[in-house]
């Protein structure tokens, strides 16, 4: 995604949850979302089945 597309997502989602984002904060927010998107791309590739659930109560 381009920076402009990420910024559009950030603006729309922030409005949805009532979170103001000032112009001087936006470059850092975009950078943070890019890091998160890279992590998300990594976990997206894990072949999960419908039986793979998130443990409702985490036990190590």
């Amino acid at each position: 995604m381009s920076d402009a597309e990420i910024e559009a997502h950030a603006r729309a989602t922030a409005a949805l949850i009532g979170l103001p984002i000032a112009p001087h904060q936006m470059p850092g927010v975009i950078a943070g979302l890019k890091v998160a998107a890279a992590a998300a791309a990594l976990i997206e590739r894990v072949p999960l089945t419908e039986a793979d659930e998130a443990a409702p109560v985490f036990r190590p």
Binding site: A14, Q25, V29, I30, A40
Partner: peptide
């Protein structure tokens, strides 16, 4: 800015993360 970004993640990413 990392906290701000963390508030804006798609729910899918978090659920996928918990399953992974």
């Amino acid at each position: 800015d990392r906290f701000l970004a963390g508030a804006l993640l798609p729910a899918h990413w978090i659920t996928q993360a918990q399953r992974v």
